[in-house]
Design a binder for these strands. Structure first.
Lengths: 187, 187
DNA sequence: GGGCAATCTTGTCAGTGTCAAGTTGTGGCC
DNA sequence: GGCCACAACTTGACACTGACAAGATTGCCC
């Protein structure tokens, strides 16, 4: 309508960026395709061509997120480092993280999503396998559940500002590092 | 409009029940005030009188959830039991749990919500204080973060069906009980 | 029994997601 | 170089939603 060119250039990327921005502050609920279109300076139906659906857009974000997470976990030195990297990912990509674990917003059967998810899952499994072989009879499967649960819970509570009062001005990563030791003797 | 009486009787409770039903399967996104009104057999604007807003309805659910959680945690025998009860609460009240930790859907300043939240927080703190006094220099604050993170992460992943493949047919509560021991030696 | 407040209805408005059909630009193929 | 198929985008429409305003009904309390 204005003096903008008919073709945006990289509308897909622009929409994704705007969506991440909105989700990071207002959550997936605050997302409006028409609003994203306005921000990108295109008509209200333009996003549909790239993502088909609202669900399609969120699914694309989740898939991208799993790719980023897999890359982050691939460089983990040991198991504890994997946990730290997991939380760091959640803090650096809060929108991705939130969407990745909201299954009711995603197209579960999407191929791009399922392969990306398999990738990040494998990265976590690898991090565990390389660090702690089951010398003491510890099940690798249980180890994965334990590390994943601890890191995921910490990250989720952190993003939801549920730990603000508890952490004070401490570095969350340092606190996370200390948690396993705290956990064991007391239980 | 039909032969139903003008006054519903307990519309507030009916709307809440229907909302919990919808959220448990479709998440908070799938919630529609008009749909809830239809289910209860009232006009589309009736719910507003009890909850003011969509946000008001979700805030009421979150407050109720914190009350239920506080009651469940109050009976915890020890710290590990508190974790188990936390996860059990999440499984028995998935809609409450989901809404309670979606701050962007809630009216943060709501009095009923903040007092209920303080109640559940106190219950968790109590469970920790009674069980594990800081004999070995362990910070109670860290213990709370640790137990909360582990239980919260486990519950969240469980509800999101992220552990289905890992758990098999095992009892989630038993697996959770084993996690702290798994966690310590390997990290 | 009369009024009054709580409860519920009807009507309306702007905003949204999605679909269908048309327009405009681009790259490739001869 | 010209043409054509296809991708990218627009316009228009429809049903649905949350929210608001104003009116109707009901039960309760003095």
């Amino acid at each position: 309508m204005s003096d903008r060119p008919y073709h945006h250039g990289d509308l897909r990327r622009a929409i994704l960026a705007a969506a991440l921005d909105v989700i990071a502050t207002d959550g997936p609920t605050g997302l409006s395709l028409r609003d994203l279109a306005r921000r990108a300076g295109v008509s209200h139906a333009a996003p549909a061509h790239h993502f088909r659906d609202r669900t399609g857009l969120l699914t694309a974000i989740a898939a991208e997120g799993h790719g980023l997470l897999a890359a982050a976990l691939a460089e983990a030195a040991d198991l504890r480092d994997a946990g730290v990297r997991y939380v760091r990912f959640a803090r650096e990509h809060p929108a991705h993280f939130q969407v990745m674990f909201s299954p009711e917003l995603l197209r579960a059967a999407d191929l791009e999503l399922t392969t990306a998810r398999a990738l990040s899952a494998a990265a976590l499994t690898d991090a565990i396998a390389t660090t702690a072989p089951a010398e003491d009879g510890t099940d690798a499967r249980l180890a994965r559940i334990a590390v994943w649960s601890l890191a995921h819970g910490f990250a989720t509570l952190l993003l939801g500002h549920n730990l603000d009062g508890l952490l004070g001005d401490e570095d969350p990563e340092e606190v996370l590092r200390a948690l396993p030791m705290v956990l064991f003797p007391s239980v």
